[in-house]
Design a protein around this nucleic acid. Sequence first.
RNA 1: GCCGGAGUGGCGGAAUAGGCAGACGCGCACGACUCAAAAUCGUGUACCCUCGGGUAUGUGGGUUCGAUUCCCACCUUCGGCACCA
Length: 818
Amino acid sequence: MIDPTSIPQYKPDEIEPKWQARWAADKLYETADHPEKQKFYALTMLPYPSGDLHIGHWYAMTPSDARARFKRMQGYNVFFPIGFDAFGLPAENAAIKRRIHPKTWTYANIARMRGQLRSMGNMFDWNSEIVSSDPKYYRWTQWFFLQFFKNNLAYQKEAPVDFCPNCNTTLAREQVQGEDRHCERCGTPVIKKNLKQWLFRITNYAEELLDFSGIDWPETIKTLQTKWIGRSKGASVTFTSEQGDPIEVFTTRPDTLWGVTFMVLAPEHPLVDKLTTPEQAEAVRAYQEQAKRQSDMQREAADRTKAGVFTGSYAINPVSGERVPVWTADYVLMGYGSGAIMAVPAHDQRDFEFARQYNLPIRVVIQPEGSPEPDPAEMPAAVEAHGAMVHSGPLSGTPEENTMEAAIAYIEKLGVGKGAVTYRLHDWLISRQRYWGAPIPIIYCPKCGTLPVPEDQLPVLLPDDVEWLPTGESPLKLHPTWRFTTCPVCGGPAERETDTMDTFMCSSWYFMRYLSPDYSTYPFDPELYRKWMPVDTYTGGSEHATMHLMYVRFFHKACRDCGITSGREPMLQLRNQGMVLGEDGEKMSKSRGNVIAPDDLVSRYGADTVRSYLTFFSRWEVGGPWNSSGIEGNSRWLRRVWAMILEPAQTNASPETLRALRRKTHQVLRAITYDYENFEFNTIVSSLMELLNDMARAKNAGAWGSPEWNECADIYLRMLAPLCPHIAEELWERLGKPYSIHTQSWPAVDEEAARDEEITLVVQVNGKLRDRILVAPGISDADAQEKALASEAVRVALEGKPVRKVIIVPGRLVNIVG
RNA sequence: GCCGGAGUGGCGGAAUAGGCAGACGCGCACGACUCAAAAUCGUGUACCCUCGGGUAUGUGGGUUCGAUUCCCACCUUCGGCACCA
């Protein structure tokens, strides 16, 4: 019983640390082995230890935590781990700028962030924490690299690669963004550098990555990945230069082969030099130089006019035998298809513009249905629509439906090409010329060549004594001794690879390490892998759509093919949160001065209030601007909850009041159960506020202390527990209920109690609301119609017109059409 | 330019299968308590109005007895891609 004379104040600053300490001491959130319970792996993207927990972390993790707690109350054995994505550039930049060792900086930040994370009151299982920069972790990151190397999924290639001059490192294609091709990290426009780099064969998995069947991921992410992979279906066709060199092209329009009037090679295409005639040599060389410079500069894609140079050579069209000039132009990209195209100006807008620019012939070979054959001299633009083939030798007259198949069959019969699929996706470049990452475990021996570091020599440890000079070379290369080693095969002197791995490599497998962070003979305990994988729900930001979220899928499939993992996909369900903006509606940034610091909010309002406001103020997947007076509402709400539960009142309510309270309780429970399951967190808080309003009315009417009231309070706290774990625990204890609320089961909806005793039927006349009538829930259509027609408002609205039709939606409305 | 998401009161947002538009909260107004203020509690709060009603979910059409919800076109906005052959 509660002593009515001593109702304490709600003091989150006292109860929150108290319960956090108790939960930790009791190991309440350590995932125990419950063979009888169904497993549920809930995962939130691991943070980078930047130094301070940002409100964005809270925004991402709170609903993730609340849902994990909900699942636990539903009876699942829930695993909800946390760790740190601890390698990466900010640590190294801090080292250069402030002369702090990246390791010191990183681990100090982690220590600080652990405390901040604990202040959120999440149910993280800290026993399984990983730090990706720990040797015991990156040993296995290196091990994965070796497995990929051995299975021909990792390879080295020298090619022009994207290089960020500010970060002083190469970047993967995905990490270069926007029209000006800037660095994903720092925004600096990238330059091209010709470097030998390590890549993973993600393109081998292009087709499989397009298959999202069996996983519940947001459509937007699936669309972004599909677009990024960029599958194009068509044909590859081999033309031949007059000198006899095969020139392979990819085309999505093999049906336009007879319309080819010239060819274009990318300026970097290896055949350009060979095909260039002495007369054209100077012009071609000058153009290549200019093209190279231009690719280094910001390029305005929109108003660029097509430019190029004739190589002086000709090629033979394999289907028509026709001789066409070979040009080089930078509108053809070396990085796509074969870096060469067959140009069909009549039916491709880019080729059309180029042909007009240089007075090259235009030949129409496609006639779209219902329109006259275009006149090459007059046509204002290319005709890209499909249509019947004309002026196409033996295939002339092929109807629109068959053109593609017919053309491919024809080139295959001639043996000059075949149906083909090309992807926009590039292999994943993982080399980074930086210190603070996992060293690539490769040794170069002048006698034996490129060799993997033997697995028993892992990890290849990062040396601590390194100078950080922003040279664009890996600091490991400048270390006096580190790179010198012996060849694992011949024992002679050899050198280590000095590049480190892209940190997206570390985050491609961390969820498997969580399962057994200290396991020393394998990256994870296979038994625990079988038990816990795949991840049931993964939550995090959508900004990783074409980076982390694609790498992680690739990685798991590649591991499967190396015999390490099983199953197609690592994460069954993905949900993305939006972004919390500053009060000015802009992205938070120090320079704007609109940053909301969670620590300040916690000391002012308490973690539970911050958690509830973050889930309440917007749809989670949308996000939106922070509102400082908005959070006051949530603070007020929790204080009201506190007082509602603890302040005694009279117990003399009518049976109707109590029945209504019980009905509302179970209706809200039904709604909230649905909302937790479906990530609709904002309406969870609304519903809890709504129920509290009903409780206030019931309390005024004498409901306090009744069995119905006590049941309502019990259910209320259980519903509140996942979202506001501290206040729920405190009130639970104060009601004399057994510790802990977080190990209680989720209440069941009593459908009988939730049923409405009477419902409001909406009565419309010609679709307009005219009246509302109270009826029994099971009312028959005939009775409903009769009651509706008896309404005075309906008679007035009908103005004496006869009733033509009556539409009845049972339990909802009656619409009378007059 | 192409692809995708989003446009609802002063503000954030709700409406789970086409059926009461505006739940819940912020803000605001009034009232109670107070010497006063804060806090708290209560009441009201889309717009117009001749007080009967009328108009409202970015704009314009359409389907339907009925549209925030479905279809078409357009506008605004936020992401993504951007010579991808």
